[in-house]
Design a protein around this nucleic acid. Sequence first.
DNA 1: TATGAATGAGTATTCATTCAT
DNA 2: CATGAATGAATACTCATTCAT
Lengths: 206, 206, 206, 206
Amino acid sequence: MAKATGERTRSNDKRERILQASVKVFARKGFYLSRVAEIAKTAGVADGTIYLYFKNKDHLLISIFEDRIDEMCDAVEAQVAGLTDPAEKLRRIIDMQLGLVAEHRDLAEVLTINLRQSTRFLKQFAAPKFNRYLDTIAAVVQEGQEKGLFRKEISPRVFACSLFGALDGLTLTWVIGRGDAGRLEKAAAAAATILIEGIRARGGAR
Amino acid sequence: MAKATGERTRSNDKRERILQASVKVFARKGFYLSRVAEIAKTAGVADGTIYLYFKNKDHLLISIFEDRIDEMCDAVEAQVAGLTDPAEKLRRIIDMQLGLVAEHRDLAEVLTINLRQSTRFLKQFAAPKFNRYLDTIAAVVQEGQEKGLFRKEISPRVFACSLFGALDGLTLTWVIGRGDAGRLEKAAAAAATILIEGIRARGGAR
Amino acid sequence: MAKATGERTRSNDKRERILQASVKVFARKGFYLSRVAEIAKTAGVADGTIYLYFKNKDHLLISIFEDRIDEMCDAVEAQVAGLTDPAEKLRRIIDMQLGLVAEHRDLAEVLTINLRQSTRFLKQFAAPKFNRYLDTIAAVVQEGQEKGLFRKEISPRVFACSLFGALDGLTLTWVIGRGDAGRLEKAAAAAATILIEGIRARGGAR
Amino acid sequence: MAKATGERTRSNDKRERILQASVKVFARKGFYLSRVAEIAKTAGVADGTIYLYFKNKDHLLISIFEDRIDEMCDAVEAQVAGLTDPAEKLRRIIDMQLGLVAEHRDLAEVLTINLRQSTRFLKQFAAPKFNRYLDTIAAVVQEGQEKGLFRKEISPRVFACSLFGALDGLTLTWVIGRGDAGRLEKAAAAAATILIEGIRARGGAR
DNA sequence: TATGAATGAGTATTCATTCAT
DNA sequence: CATGAATGAATACTCATTCAT
């Protein structure tokens, strides 16, 4: 993704390595118990080098979140644009979110667990980007409502939060538990059914 | 002295005061940025006194979780026992969980946000008590399935995780956002509809 | 020793129990790593009780030293008074000091090792009592010199320090090492020979 | 910068400065009452810097002992190698040990007083190096015995402990007392006479 | 750009001592 | 006399961050 041109400089490689090292270390130890020195070592750079690319330790976590959620939003929007059925769109979003989790377990841990350090932190850094994701989902819901496929009494925003939350809850128990990928795939299907049936308009149009 | 209610010993009062102070401080600063000295001051005890009642700072967080979730489980089980309709049971659980959140915002923040410090932490301390809560929900789902009211292809455990997660997601955005209680109440109703309709068996029984 | 009359009150028993507990705990952990609470528990009294008998933790160590060295001086002076030959007196002192060590290993550890916490401590508390012991030895040396049995060019004080030090050195290695009593007895005999021969006047009187 | 002698690296300078500061502070306050912060200030480094060179506070004391006793052993062995008469060798060892004490009073205090913190400490850290010193002395004694100059019934090891102890006893009273160097020099001569005469074989060879 | 030695602010925890009972 | 719950001062050590090279 995004290496379209030769735009990755040597620096960007280093930035990326640091970020990936952060994910690995944060996932293993948690944010506060992770040491910048260990991240540096894992990334194969000197401690000080990290500060050439990131303002401070907090911004490692923030950058992980911002980079990845932007990628996720881009990908979701691209995929959804190719579909017409809102229900299908929701199903695709669910698959993509849980697919990301299943493929990048460390990242999943960081985003589901470590990101929640404090309310202040979430408000200040995560909220804006997070809202973009929720808005993407809400837009699909609204489209479905306008097409008469989804019930209109459900607030698109509330549905988006519930959907995101349900998937996050499944991710949480998956990450805490043994966590084989197959189980998560089945859970994705079930969650999709619950949520889509939960909002589907009843009546003639079945 | 001070056994007003006749039941609480002096010790239990002190323990409780420390725990309430912890909730307040953790909610304001987050776990790692909270200072034991500030908790002590808020509780009106000496720093050292905290260590007469709790092993260390970690166990303040752990104890908050364990004490409150036990209370919540007890209350939920008591309420649910008085109802017969599984759908009604689910609705009551949803109301209770979001009701707790709305009434005890600080506690909600701590449980929704601060509790997630690290995977290790969650696995080691939160998982067992958390499972009790999920099991309570799953039992209701299974009951509904056996009565033919809920669709059988949905795993009760997956539904429980999704329900918990959806509510947690709503709580998260409520806590991060402005957070007026009315909004949460409406969200509770919508979430109940989504999830209950999402699992309700289709067919004759509409 | 010194229970001549019924003079031991219940209190003195408790004081003595605390002191013996201190010896045991100090010997095991060293002075600074010993906890007043552990001494109290070992003595079978409450923490606060210790402060009814001793000013503070320092004075536990001081009191051990002062009590025991007084007893030792009394005993040495009594024994020595019954002998006429100064060489024999020295031999008896050596036997008594190392005998005490062999019989009360914990006490030996405390006096040989733990007593040396700081120069200030030694100067302030140990010096006076310690000097009484050195003076007793020096008096024997002077007596021997006056009788023409010991060489006059050796300062009695220097000899006393050397004798005490030699025995303390043997005690130290005995305490650090395996420490079977037999070895110490042999060492006592050898040390006696070295030191007595070392000061004995040469010439006709062999 | 600052490689004046051309041999010491910057690091070694810093390590050495910290060690010298430790000696000064330990001598003044005793080990447990010495503050790491004061050692750092005395050494002219930041608190944390100490931990780049030493594992912890304990290892400051350990390192002082190990470094200095190694130097002492090296020096003693070198000096003794140039002499043939065992009695002369012993005299030289005594002079060197008390000479070190007289010239480095702070170090003497630390080694004689502060090093004895607990039996465990001595067993674990001091014993091995200390034994090297005792062995050096014992070897001289054995040599004297083989040459028929020293009495064979005295165990070389016991003699070594006694000699070390006698000198340590003299050092102790010197350090506690006023401690002018002249007094120690005289004591050294007297102690040498006592101990050497104490082991010298009697008979024709006077 | 990159390094990593040096910094020093910051804090959980301990434990000798007190004092209300 | 005796207790032991409560106190709170005191400190070794860590680790994010800097900056001279």
